[in-house]
């Protein structure tokens, strides 16, 4: 970032393709673990909230508080216990996915038209079959909207975990700040945005292939 130096030095990029690829891989790994774990926990919480409606407000309140705590603060709380580790990063990342995922799963299932549920019951579907074959498929659109937001948010937050020794592309950003060198900083930031956009696009494609009935007309 010395005057006269270009913002991006392409020779540095060319010499570090291996490292950049590695960081992208780390970034994806951190993100996928967080979203998959978050989804599993969110489904458990959502089913609990649907089965026992009085549990739903405290569940969302708890997830809401987790969501409000700044990411760096949440990681800082955990470091004395779980160290500068993958576990620390994932606990934080998973925490941030819960609010949006639980909320969308529950509201998706609750928004299934009552006449559809009534018809299914009247034709002899068991309650379990109604959940798996009617309610979940129909809630998929709202659930996917939640997964998309959770994924994009997680990809952004993963960069912050560089401060606790993880971080994927965040590592490049931090390197740039520490060495006062704009190239890795811009490469890391640009790629993390690109990754978010690409992940969102990929999720849209998956959603379309899972929900053929939304493509008609």
């Amino acid at each position: 970032m010395t005057p006269g130096e270009p913002l991006v030095r392409w020779d540095w990029v060319a010499n570090h393709t291996g490292e950049i690829g590695l960081r992208i891989g780390e970034h994806l790994e951190l993100t996928i673990i967080a979203v998959v774990l978050g989804l599993a926990i969110a489904f458990a919480l959502a089913f609990a909230g649907l089965r026992l409606p009085h549990l739903y407000p405290p569940i969302t309140a708890f997830a809401g508080i987790l969501y409000t705590i700044p990411s760096l603060a949440l990681f800082a709380f955990l470091v004395p216990y779980t160290g500068l580790s993958l576990l620390t990063a994932e606990i934080g990342l998973v925490s941030y996915t819960l609010l949006i995922l639980v909320r969308n799963i529950v509201s998706g299932i609750r928004s299934v038209p009552s006449e559809v549920r009534d018809a299914a019951l009247g034709m002899g579907y068991t309650p379990r079959a109604i959940l798996w074959r009617i309610e979940l498929p129909l809630a998929l659109g709202v659930i996917f909207a939640g997964i998309r937001v959770a994924t994009i948010t997680t990809i952004g937050l993963v960069t912050v975990t560089a401060l606790i020794g993880q971080g994927g592309l965040g590592y490049l950003i931090l390197l740039g700040i520490q060495q006062f060198f704009s190239t890795p900083l811009i490469v890391g930031a640009t790629l993390s945005v690109a990754l978010a956009v690409a992940a969102d696009g990929a999720l849209v494609l998956v959603q379309r292939s899972l929900m053929p009935w939304t493509r008609v007309r």
């Binding site: 006449e115 018809a119 034709m123 002899g124 129909l138």
Partner: peptide, 22 residues
């Protein structure tokens, strides 16, 4: 009741067709 319902046809005003099925 589930066995019973499979032996009885059921039609309602809003049709209750499953939107995600052909």
């Amino acid at each position: 009741p589930t066995e019973l319902r499979r032996r009885i046809g059921y039609v309602i005003q809003q049709t209750g067709l499953f939107p995600h099925q052909t």
